[in-house]
Write a protein that binds this DNA or RNA. Structure first.
Length: 919
RNA sequence: GGGCCUGUGGCUCAGGUGGUUAGAGCGCACCCCUGAUAAGGGUGAGGUCACAGGUUCAAGUCCUGUCAGGCCCA
């Protein structure tokens, strides 16, 4: 007779394999239908004690998403859900960054430069808007395909009218605090196109230039500092003679040695030899000194006799030239920076066409200055060389890589123009400086990982004033009026409020479309004739830096509150969004916009190298979803140490798939084994093995919970995986089979195991739900009532801690015994002496074993008995402490039903099975 | 070149304030089961803790330097 049918074998509709790539999209579609999942999450936690608000950092609305986006959004989703399944109210409103140069360039590429220039600004902006909208739709679908849940029905976009108005309002707040200033700063300038260029609009090409060494005589004070009477000249080197009229200073390296030569020249010691070889000078070293003794003294320009300040700068290198750097703050980024430090005026004698203007006359920058006015700078080089006369120590030509305009393909120049800045070090209206306030605010933020505070802190400490103006079309205008007669901007609150109101209704396009008279509120008292519009737009970092206001504070979004609980982005955003948001929020409100900042690293390939198209090691999220399933990608995120670089490759994904399979199958078995249970057995009626696993699970789950609450998912999942593989699947489920399969349906011994299984399953599912939301949802569909309770789907789940129950079971001792037992068993099996441990009986007088119920004890080792003495054939023995365990062959017969060797007669049922069948 | 960070078996990760033969899971090899079966179980082999110095009775753990990699600047 086949007794198989009399057993209570596992039964479940939950399949072993998930067919994730085929099945995931269907479930996701249901979740996102009418934002059902997100709405349910909001409803279920209404008025929860705690609230967690994740404020989304906006991706740029251009292109498809890559694996980095996927990591970012999945991690956000896991964190939001972690808070959710632990019982908190959550908010997550995703958003997009829409303005900025890359989109403008895409549009220009599409319609061509000529057409772009002929179209009205509002038309171009409309095309940019279309482009952004198209990619927002694409990316939104791609993010949803990753199972990321949020307010997809009403995401934020920085180009929405209300949003543009709020960005502008944030700017007004900064202005009102007195932190908005105008100053000249050099930018890339295409004289051919008469426009400022962004970094991305510059291409490098070869260009032939002069290489000249020029002598600048020291003034008396400087000579005195050097303790010399005779004349001495600082030698500078430059490739752009035309910038010499704007020379304001000479920079020395503060660390390096400088020398005075016998022929009266001053150069860096490290370069003296090379200058001798080039025959720039002939003298030997007469005196060595550090440049700080010359600091703030003067040399004289050989061109115009004006003072040139001697200053110190870290940017001065020893890899060429003379170690004494010609410094013209109007014509170079580094020159400008060091100039700021020494309070040096920005001289800018070149107009937008690249010609000298009246400045050269007014300031006397050249001899016979009138003859230079309207002369193009590149045509002035030769005349300037001539004017230098004997001061020109050496002149040659060479070819080097030089920035060119990407449209006109003409060389560009650095040219100082008026720009808008947010002042870092201005003490206005009785407040600390922005830098001080921001630094203080950082100290109140909790960083994950903690090193983030150093990174953001040192950036705030060292950054220059924030230049927020751009000379572009696709952005929020710096919409201020300027008084034509005084040149002063008008920061009148009523005027600004009215402008903001217009933007809210018509978008920022109004700034281009409407007349000044229309933009002023009726009865403002200003004369439109005497006003002009500032036509610069805002740096897009200011846009995203304002999202705390435009999203968290806005009534347009159900986004939670300001400040947010957390900002979460890649570590590159220390430079970007974390900083811009901190500065705008601190400037406007005096506080940081976030309580916590969490950063993740970048995705790299198996070798730890960055992904690039040229290397061909790029992994696309969609390919992973199609090959492995989104759950695998999500599990990869949870298993990875995200604070550092994250490696991803086929091998790694395969490994993650194995882990997923283990989790899935264990859950399957858990479901199958708790099937049919009506209610949880009271703890005091449970068997010792069941009490042991409950006790152990409690310890593990508590620890996992603590890890997850600190966002340490990889550690939490390691603990969980270990528990699932070793104690749960490896031991407990294996040793429970006899009790579950062979005993009667209503027997306590069976109900006890089922109860422990159900209690563990509920918590286990809630712990993995933030990561494997899809899988848990699928599990619940097939879960028996005792696990499912009144839940409709995964979103009804709530994690609760397990009860603490005591157990009189020395797990460490019993584990050791089990390990030693199986060491011997392995040999017995390999030697073909036995096939199954059920053929064996253990003989021991161990007190620790004696106090355990004998059925539980034999199940622990999966043997047919544990006795204190036996006459069976000796198969080996082992010791735990002082206790001896002897392994012997079972002397009774194999029960055809339960396979234990406990039957008194051949082919006869054992006592237990007999009772079960005849009950 | 500067700032921040990372480097433990094939893979993913543990290793408070330095202290026994460096741990785990996965993978791999071998074996068992066929009543979780495109599952389950057992045993085992894998590590110069990137490298080189130093501090110390003692260093994966502290210090210095080098190399490799990442992000951000210049």
């Amino acid at each position: 007779m086949d007794y198989k049918d009399t057993l209570l074998l596992p039964k479940t509709g939950f399949s072993m394999r998930g067919n994730l790539p085929q099945n995931e999209p269907k479930r996701y579609t249901q979740w996102f239908n009418e934002d059902k999942a997100y709405e349910k999450m909001k409803t279920n936690r209404k008025n929860a004690e705690k609230k967690f608000i994740l404020h989304d950092g906006p991706p740029y609305a251009n292109g498809h998403i890559h694996i980095g986006h996927a990591l970012n959004k999945i991690l956000k989703d896991i964190i939001v859900k972690t808070h959710y399944f632990f019982g908190e109210e959550v908010r997550y409103v995703p958003g997009w960054d829409c303005h900025g140069l890359p989109i403008e360039q895409q549009v220009e590429k599409k319609i061509g430069k000529e057409k772009k220039e002929s179209l009205p600004k509002s038309k171009i902006r409309e095309l940019c808007r279309e482009h952004a909208r198209k990619f927002i739709d694409i990316q939104r679908d791609e993010f949803k395909a990753l199972g990321v849940i949020g307010d997809w029905k009403n995401p934020y976009m920085t180009m929405k009218f209300e949003f543009e108005a709020d960005i502008y309002r944030a700017l007004c707040e900064v202005a009102t605090k007195g932190l908005l200033i105008e100053r000249s700063k050099p930018v890339y300038w295409s004289w051919a196109a008469r426009t400022a260029l962004a970094e991305a609009e510059v291409e490098y090409e070869d260009k032939e230039d002069y290489s000249i060494y020029v002598a600048y005589p020291l003034k008396d004070e400087a000579k005195k500092a050097l303790e010399i009477e005779e004349d001495a000249n600082v030698i500078i080197w430059t490739t752009t003679p035309w910038t010499l009229p704007a020379n304001m200073a000479i920079s020395f390296n503060p660390e390096e040695d400088y020398v005075l030569t016998t022929d009266g020249f001053i150069v860096a010691k490290a370069l003296h030899e090379s200058l001798l070889e080039q025959e720039v000078l002939k003298g030997e070293i007469k005196k060595t000194f550090k440049a700080d003794i010359l600091e703030n003294l003067y040399a004289k320009s050989p061109l115009n006799g004006k003072d040139s300040k001697l200053i110190l700068g870290e940017h001065v290198t020893m890899d060429g030239g003379s170690g004494c750097v010609h410094t013209a703050p109007g014509h170079g980024e580094e020159d400008y920076r060091v100039g700021l430090k020494y309070n040096i005026e920005v001289m800018m004698p070149v107009d937008e066409r690249g010609c000298y203007d009246e400045t050269v006359v007014r300031e006397g920058l050249l001899p016979d200055p009138e003859s230079f006015v309207n002369v193009h700078i590149f045509k002035a080089n030769e005349r300037i060389l001539e004017l230098l006369g004997d001061s020109l120590l050496k002149c040659s030509k060479f070819t080097h890589s030089y920035p060119f305009c990407w449209r006109t393909h003409k060389p560009v120049i650095y040219r100082a123009t008026k720009q808008w800045f947010i002042a870092m070090d201005e003490e206005t209206k009785g407040r600390d400086t922005l830098r001080q306030m921001a630094t203080q605010n950082i100290s109140k933020v909790k960083f994950y990982p903690e090193s983030g505070i150093n990174r953001l802190g040192s950036m705030i400490e060292n950054r220059p004033d924030w230049c927020i103006s751009r000379q572009r079309d696709w952005g929020v205008p710096i919409a201020f009026f300027r008084d034509k007669t005084t040149g002063e901007p008008i920061f009148d609150e009523k005027v600004m409020n009215y402008t903001a109101m217009i933007f809210e209704q018509r978008g920022a396009d109004a700034w281009w479309d409407m007349e000044i008279s229309e933009l002023l509120y009726p009865g403002s008292g200003y004369n439109p004739e005497n006003l002009e519009k500032v036509m610069d737009i805002l740096d897009v970092w200011f846009d995203s830096g304002s999202t705390w206001k435009a999203v968290l504070e806005s009534r347009v979004y159900d986004s939670g509150a300001y400040p947010a609980s957390m900002y979460l982005e890649g570590s590159d955003q220390h430079r970007g969004w974390f900083q811009s948001s901190l500065l705008v929020s601190t400037a406007a409100r005096g506080i940081a916009p976030y309580d916590k900042v969490l950063t993740h690293g970048f995705t790299v390939d198996a070798k730890g190298e960055k992904m690039s198209k040229s290397k061909g090691n790029v992994v696309a999220p969609n390919d992973i979803a199609k090959q492995y399933g989104v759950e695998i990608l999500r599990l990869w995120v949870s298993l990875s140490e995200y604070t550092t670089d994250l490696k991803i490759s086929n091998e790694i994904l395969k490994q993650v798939s194995e882990q997923y399979r283990k989790i899935r199958n264990t859950c399957r078995f858990l479901l199958a084994n708790s099937e049919g249970l009506k209610e949880i057995l009271p703890y005091e009626k449970m068997g010792v093995l069941d009490r042991w696993i409950l006790n152990h699970a409690k310890k593990v789950f508590d620890e996992v919970e603590a890890c997850f609450k600190e966002y340490d998912f990889s550690k939490g999942f390691s603990l969980l995986s270990h528990f699932i593989a070793v104690e749960l699947s490896g031991i407990y489920l294996d040793i429970s089979k006899d009790r579950l399969y062979c005993n009667g349906e209503k027997e306590n011994i069976r109900l006890s195991t089922q109860s422990a299984t159900a209690l563990i399953t509920r918590r286990l599912l809630a712990l993995i739900a933030p990561t494997l939301t899809y899988t848990v949802d699928e599990i619940l569909e097939h879960a028996p009532a005792i696990i499912k309770e009144d839940m409709d789907d995964v979103f009804d789940m709530l994690y609760t801690q397990m009860d603490n129950i005591e157990v009189d079971f020395d797990a460490e001792y019993m584990m050791e015994a089990r390990e030693k037992f199986f060491e011997i068993i392995d040999n017995l099996k390999k030697e073909k002496v036995i096939k199954s441990t059920l053929e064996l009986v253990l003989v021991t007088t161990s007190e620790k074993v004696a106090k355990i119920n004998s059925t539980d004890a034999e199940d622990w080792f999966t043997t047919s008995g544990i006795v204190s003495e036996s006459t069976g054939e000796d198969m080996g023995s082992f010791k735990v402490g002082d206790d001896t365990f002897k392994i012997v062959k079972a002397t009774e017969n194999k029960c055809p039903r339960c396979w234990k060797f406990k039957s008194s007669e051949e082919e006869g049922l054992c006592k237990r099975c007999d009772e079960v069948l005849n009950a």
